[in-house]
Amino acid sequence: MLERLGHTVEFPPSQTCCGQMHYNTGYQAEALPLLSRFVDGFEHAEAVCVPSASCVAMMREHYVMMAEAMGDASLLARVKALLPRIYEFSELLVNFLKVEDVGAYYPHSVVYHPSCHSLRMLHVGDAPKKLLRKVRGLNLIEMPNATQCCGFGGTFAIKNAEVSAAMLSEKSRDVLNTNAEVCTALDNSCLMQIYGGLHRQRAGVQTLHLAEILAHTEATEDLAAGGPEGEHAKEHEAAQ
């Protein structure tokens, strides 16, 4: 989609993980070595597109603190220089590239789940909905209790599996009540949770990252009809 808009996209193969899982579970020491790796891989880019709001939140909330904790002044300076160029996917389009109509076509009914980190930490606001409203053929349906957490929460979903599942069942019910064909979000982690619940119920609702919907055009094979989608949007891309 970014190439379709005329941008040069690079995927630094050295990239792995932003460190959020470690950091948020309390393994902050184990997250530290991942910081310089991230900076090495991305600092040359004009803009870094991260199609995962919670990863961006991790970077913005904790990278400065991590560099300080490491006592590495030069790393700290590099982190501070890089952070303003990091964009969550919808931020990149709406705020940085100033585009809302990306020329996508997607003839399905869709609900948007505002993931907690995109909503409360990045404050992306209406950006994703602006993008979805410009997708031709797409019927955007409002979801009740949309701002309530889906119950994923990283390792919370495993450590407190039963509570996480109870939260998920509320979210699943709200998604199903809209009769939408597809649920979308800015975080594949939340979508993994939501799809996991819906699939267990054999609900027949697909989950797609916003990027997957925006990549669609008339010429694209239909994703809503297809099987499970992969982790494409999970990895970070450097746009240049």
Binding site: M1, E3, R4, L5, G6, V102, G103, E212, A215, H216, T217, E218, A219, T220, E221, L223, G226, E229, G230, H232
Partner: peptide, 14 residues
Amino acid sequence: RRAASSETKEGASH
């Protein structure tokens, strides 16, 4: 820019 490229098709239907 609405025209789709064949690459996009490939990319999205992995």
